[in-house]
């Protein structure tokens, strides 16, 4: 008998747009830069305290921190891209993510209150959009799917919102996405 773990086999779920790896690499590099910037303070203190006996050149500590952090974060990017998946079922949306701390979320379409599309400057340059799905009573998004193309994101939003419609709603038909798909690929197919 097929177990539930095999049934919920995320390797068969949709992956994000591969360009999202670039987005994560860039933003990780910025984070690493900011974090390693903090190492300037201990660097200054140590060099002052050692009075010339400090073996490393000036600002070596932040540089080392930047390299180590950066490499770690870049290594994780590939794994998290592999692990970040979603699946649009007939009546639900499932999102799986996490490399070390894994999570699988199941949101029923009937419970969706609204869907947000957001994209920052780097994501916009890459043509990526983040879809956030909200349910009732929770202040934060119930699920987020980063790194979809504008076309896929709008399609996803339209289909999620349509299914969540109550009887007697004003919306009778699904709006078409405002942009064409990237390579003629359609998540509906």
């Amino acid at each position: 008998m097929e177990t539930m773990v095999e049934k919920i086999d995320i390797t068969r779920w949709n992956q994000l747009e591969p360009k999202v790896k670039t987005l994560w690499r860039v933003s990780n590099a910025i984070y690493a830069l900011l974090l390693s910037g903090l190492a300037i303070i201990p660097d200054l203190i140590v060099r002052k305290a050692a009075k010339g006996a400090w073996p490393l050149f000036p600002f070596a500590l932040p540089l080392i921190a930047f390299v180590v952090l950066g490499l770690l974060m870049q290594w994780v990017v590939g794994r998290s891209y592999y692990c970040y998946r979603y699946k649009l079922g007939d009546d639900d949306l499932a999102v799986a993510k996490g490399v070390f701390w894994k999570s699988w979320r199941f949101v029923n379409r009937n419970r969706i209150q609204h869907v947000d599309l957001t994209s920052g400057p780097i994501a916009r340059a890459l043509g990526l959009v983040e879809v956030s799905i909200y349910v009732g009573g929770m202040p934060t998004a119930a699920a987020t799917i980063p790194g979809l193309s504008q076309y896929d994101a709008e399609l996803l939003r339209a289909s999620l919102v349509k299914a969540a419609d109550m009887p007697g709603s004003m919306m009778t038909q699904q709006p078409e996405p405002t942009v064409p798909p990237i390579e003629g690929e359609d998540i509906r197919g």
Binding site: F100, W101, S103, F106, V107, G136, A142
Partner: peptide, 10 residues
Amino acid sequence: IQLTEVTQNP
């Protein structure tokens, strides 16, 4: 229930 989640730590 609004949504369900399964999590797994290392």
